[in-house]
Amino acid sequence: MAELQLKSHRFREEREADWRRLETLLAKVEKGGAAKLRRNELLEMPVLYQQALSSLSVARSISLDQSLVEYLESLCTRAYFFVYGTRTRLGERVLGFFRHEWPAAVRGLWRETLVSAAIMVVGAITAFVLVGQDPDWFYGFIPAELAGGRDPTASAASLRSTLYGEATLRDGLGVMAAFLFTHNSQVAIFAFALGFALCLPTAGLMVYNGCMLGAFLALFASHGLAFEATGWLMIHGVTELFAITLAGAAGFSIGWAVAFPGERTRVDAAAHAGRRAAMVMGGVVVMLFAAGLLEGFARQLIRHDLARYAVAAATGIFWAGYFYLPRKAPR
């Protein structure tokens, strides 16, 4: 034991200066980025990293004390990310995501996006027609306890007051709005997560979400309030429904890769599709957050129909331009 301790002490004494030097340079990088290093220090880093790796290999082979081995492992891991890892800061990565990576991932799923949107529209039209022909269908899509009296038995005056009155969470329509946002967020997550099951659960979720939308609009349309209700809904619904559509597209892309993997194995095909779909879903979370802000503030503050439609149109134009207008490729 005494011989082992002596060997460890000599080993550390001969090499510790280089380890400390590497640790000092890493601390400068971690604090202010690679720009903090001078030219000679940048050239010095790979050499010190290789020396630290060599020391770690020797320490493991001659069974030096575990604390020294753990210290060298930590030091080499930190140095590895500088020597071989990306040199971008967090802010640059976030900027790159919003400027290039997310829009490119969405454009890559344009076919799946069209399919997702078409399925939701079919569901909405179906529910709208069914409720229009038989109001009892409304309860098949929206539970009576959730409607809070805003159902086929309500008067036109009562429904109109919910569109322009003080909408709090205690109001029936306010409760419905909160529920719809929570529901839509869940639909977006599950549509993506269940896409691997050959697209079927994702398609079902898109249909049902469209049916809820259609039933809601049919209720107000039956009292001559379709224009007003659409403006009330679309002020945040453009962003929210677009987010759900993209989540469905992400789920469809994974399901399609599993069903038709091509030359890849199903696991490899699903993993390849999943990376792009996950990029899309990261942005969907941002869109749902933006929709929540629009619902919580703009919908309450803006009471004029044309102003509501203007906001809805502006958000639609913004998202369409953001995702689909040509842009310079990243360098």
Rank of each mutant, 00 (worst) to 15 (best):
V115A: 12
F81C: 10
R87D: 04
L130P: 05
L90V: 04
T77G: 11
T113V: 11
V106G: 05
V94C: 03
A105R: 00
E73V: 15
V129D: 04
W110Y: 07
L130I: 09
V121T: 13
D136N: 12
W102T: 02
G108S: 13
V131A: 03
A124L: 06
V106F: 05
L72Y: 12
W137F: 15
F81M: 12
R111P: 03
V122G: 09
T77C: 09
R99E: 09
Q133Y: 13
G85E: 03
T88Q: 08
F97E: 01
T88E: 08
G108D: 13
R87I: 00
V122M: 15
R93E: 10
I125S: 14
R99K: 14
V94A: 13
R111S: 03
T113M: 13
V83D: 04
V131I: 06
V83F: 06
G85K: 09
Q133T: 09
A117Q: 03
V69C: 06
H100Y: 13
P103C: 07
T113P: 03
R93T: 04
A105L: 02
T88A: 04
R107M: 02
I125V: 15
W137L: 05
G91V: 02
C76T: 15
L130H: 04
L109Y: 04
E92T: 05
L114R: 10
V94N: 01
L75A: 07
F81R: 14
F98A: 04
D134S: 15
L95V: 14
L130F: 11
A124F: 13
V83R: 05
V131Q: 02
L114W: 10
C76H: 10
R99Q: 10
V106L: 03
L75G: 08
P103I: 10
L109K: 07
T88P: 01
V94R: 02
P135C: 07
E92C: 01
W102Y: 14
F82G: 00
R99W: 03
A105D: 00
Y80N: 15
V115N: 06
V122Y: 12
T113D: 01
R93Q: 12
